[in-house]
Amino acid sequence: MVQRGSKVRILRPESYWFQDVGTVASVDQSGIKYPVIVRFEKVNYSGINTNNFAEDELVEVEA
Results as ranks from 00 to 15, higher is better:
1 M>Q: 13
1 M>E: 08
1 M>L: 12
1 M>I: 11
1 M>Y: 11
1 M>K: 15
2 V>A: 04
2 V>I: 15
2 V>G: 03
2 V>L: 15
2 V>R: 02
2 V>D: 05
2 V>T: 04
3 Q>M: 11
3 Q>T: 11
3 Q>F: 06
3 Q>I: 09
3 Q>A: 10
3 Q>P: 04
4 R>A: 14
4 R>W: 06
4 R>M: 12
5 G>P: 03
5 G>A: 01
5 G>H: 02
5 G>V: 03
5 G>Y: 02
5 G>M: 00
6 S>N: 07
6 S>G: 04
6 S>K: 08
6 S>Y: 09
6 S>T: 13
6 S>D: 10
6 S>P: 03
6 S>V: 09
7 K>E: 05
7 K>N: 04
7 K>V: 10
7 K>S: 06
7 K>P: 03
8 V>E: 02
8 V>K: 06
8 V>C: 08
8 V>N: 01
8 V>T: 00
8 V>Y: 02
9 R>H: 06
9 R>K: 11
9 R>M: 11
9 R>P: 04
9 R>N: 06
9 R>T: 07
9 R>G: 06
10 I>P: 04
10 I>R: 04
10 I>Q: 02
10 I>C: 10
10 I>H: 03
10 I>G: 02
10 I>T: 02
10 I>N: 02
10 I>W: 04
11 L>W: 06
11 L>E: 06
11 L>K: 04
11 L>M: 10
11 L>P: 05
11 L>Y: 05
12 R>C: 08
12 R>F: 05
12 R>Y: 05
13 P>Q: 12
13 P>V: 14
13 P>M: 12
13 P>E: 13
13 P>L: 10
14 E>Q: 10
14 E>D: 14
14 E>K: 08
14 E>N: 12
14 E>C: 12
14 E>H: 11
15 S>G: 02
15 S>C: 09
15 S>K: 01
15 S>N: 02
15 S>E: 03
15 S>I: 04
15 S>V: 03
15 S>A: 04
16 Y>F: 15
16 Y>K: 02
16 Y>H: 05
16 Y>N: 01
16 Y>P: 06
16 Y>L: 03
16 Y>W: 07
16 Y>E: 06
17 W>Q: 00
17 W>S: 01
17 W>A: 00
17 W>I: 02
17 W>C: 03
17 W>D: 00
17 W>L: 02
17 W>H: 02
18 F>W: 05
18 F>R: 01
18 F>I: 02
18 F>E: 00
18 F>L: 01
18 F>Q: 01
18 F>G: 00
19 Q>Y: 08
19 Q>L: 14
19 Q>W: 11
19 Q>A: 07
19 Q>I: 06
19 Q>H: 09
19 Q>F: 09
20 D>W: 08
20 D>V: 09
20 D>S: 10
20 D>L: 12
21 V>A: 01
21 V>N: 00
21 V>P: 01
21 V>Q: 02
21 V>L: 10
21 V>M: 04
21 V>R: 00
21 V>C: 09
21 V>W: 03
22 G>Y: 08
22 G>M: 05
22 G>T: 03
22 G>Q: 04
22 G>L: 08
23 T>Y: 08
23 T>N: 03
23 T>A: 02
23 T>K: 04
23 T>I: 13
24 V>E: 01
24 V>L: 01
24 V>N: 02
24 V>Q: 00
24 V>S: 00
24 V>H: 01
24 V>M: 02
24 V>G: 01
24 V>Y: 04
25 A>D: 14
25 A>G: 03
25 A>P: 01
25 A>N: 05
25 A>T: 14
25 A>K: 09
25 A>Y: 11
25 A>C: 15
25 A>F: 11
25 A>Q: 15
26 S>H: 14
26 S>C: 15
26 S>K: 10
26 S>E: 12
26 S>P: 01
27 V>D: 01
27 V>P: 00
27 V>M: 06
27 V>G: 02
27 V>R: 04
27 V>E: 02
27 V>T: 03
28 D>C: 12
28 D>E: 09
28 D>W: 04
28 D>P: 03
28 D>I: 09
29 Q>K: 13
29 Q>V: 11
29 Q>A: 10
29 Q>C: 12
29 Q>W: 11
29 Q>D: 12
30 S>G: 10
30 S>P: 04
30 S>A: 08
30 S>C: 08
30 S>R: 09
30 S>H: 07
30 S>V: 04
31 G>F: 09
31 G>H: 10
31 G>P: 06
31 G>A: 11
31 G>N: 15
31 G>Y: 09
31 G>D: 12
32 I>V: 13
32 I>C: 12
32 I>N: 10
33 K>I: 07
33 K>D: 09
33 K>E: 11
33 K>A: 12
33 K>V: 06
33 K>G: 06
34 Y>M: 07
34 Y>I: 02
34 Y>V: 03
34 Y>N: 06
34 Y>R: 09
34 Y>C: 09
35 P>N: 13
35 P>R: 11
35 P>W: 11
35 P>D: 04
36 V>E: 00
36 V>C: 04
36 V>H: 00
36 V>A: 01
36 V>I: 14
36 V>G: 00
37 I>F: 12
37 I>H: 11
37 I>P: 00
37 I>E: 15
37 I>Y: 10
38 V>W: 01
38 V>S: 00
38 V>D: 01
38 V>R: 00
38 V>Q: 00
38 V>T: 00
38 V>C: 05
38 V>N: 00
38 V>E: 00
39 R>Y: 11
39 R>E: 12
39 R>W: 13
39 R>D: 02
40 F>S: 01
40 F>H: 01
40 F>M: 00
40 F>A: 00
40 F>R: 00
40 F>N: 00
40 F>E: 00
40 F>P: 02
41 E>P: 07
41 E>W: 08
41 E>L: 08
41 E>M: 07
41 E>K: 08
41 E>N: 10
41 E>S: 08
42 K>S: 12
42 K>W: 08
42 K>H: 09
42 K>M: 07
42 K>Y: 07
42 K>P: 01
42 K>C: 11
43 V>Q: 11
43 V>L: 10
43 V>E: 10
44 N>F: 05
44 N>E: 04
44 N>H: 12
44 N>M: 06
44 N>L: 04
44 N>T: 07
44 N>A: 05
45 Y>M: 14
45 Y>A: 15
45 Y>W: 13
45 Y>C: 15
45 Y>N: 15
45 Y>D: 15
45 Y>Q: 15
45 Y>S: 15
46 S>D: 15
46 S>K: 13
46 S>N: 14
46 S>H: 14
46 S>Q: 15
47 G>F: 06
47 G>E: 03
47 G>C: 08
47 G>A: 03
47 G>H: 03
47 G>D: 04
47 G>V: 02
47 G>N: 05
47 G>L: 02
48 I>C: 15
48 I>Q: 15
48 I>E: 15
48 I>Y: 11
48 I>P: 03
48 I>F: 11
48 I>S: 14
48 I>G: 07
48 I>T: 10
49 N>M: 06
49 N>H: 07
49 N>D: 11
49 N>S: 09
50 T>G: 03
50 T>H: 11
50 T>A: 06
50 T>D: 04
50 T>C: 15
50 T>M: 12
50 T>N: 04
51 N>E: 15
51 N>H: 13
51 N>S: 15
51 N>R: 03
51 N>W: 15
51 N>C: 15
52 N>Y: 09
52 N>K: 07
52 N>R: 13
52 N>S: 14
52 N>T: 07
53 F>P: 02
54 A>R: 12
54 A>P: 00
54 A>V: 02
54 A>K: 09
54 A>E: 06
54 A>N: 09
55 E>T: 13
55 E>D: 07
55 E>F: 15
55 E>R: 13
55 E>Q: 13
55 E>V: 14
55 E>I: 14
56 D>E: 10
56 D>P: 04
56 D>F: 12
56 D>G: 06
56 D>Q: 06
56 D>I: 08
56 D>S: 12
56 D>R: 07
57 E>H: 01
57 E>V: 03
57 E>C: 04
57 E>I: 03
57 E>L: 01
57 E>S: 02
58 L>W: 02
58 L>C: 07
58 L>E: 01
58 L>P: 02
58 L>D: 04
59 V>E: 15
59 V>P: 00
59 V>G: 07
59 V>Q: 14
59 V>H: 08
59 V>C: 13
59 V>I: 12
59 V>L: 12
60 E>I: 15
60 E>F: 11
60 E>D: 05
60 E>V: 15
60 E>R: 11
60 E>S: 10
60 E>T: 13
60 E>M: 14
60 E>W: 09
60 E>H: 10
61 V>L: 09
61 V>D: 04
61 V>I: 10
61 V>G: 03
61 V>C: 08
61 V>W: 06
61 V>F: 05
62 E>Y: 11
62 E>I: 10
62 E>C: 13
62 E>F: 13
62 E>K: 11
62 E>D: 12
63 A>W: 12
63 A>N: 12
63 A>I: 11
63 A>G: 12
63 A>C: 13
63 A>P: 13
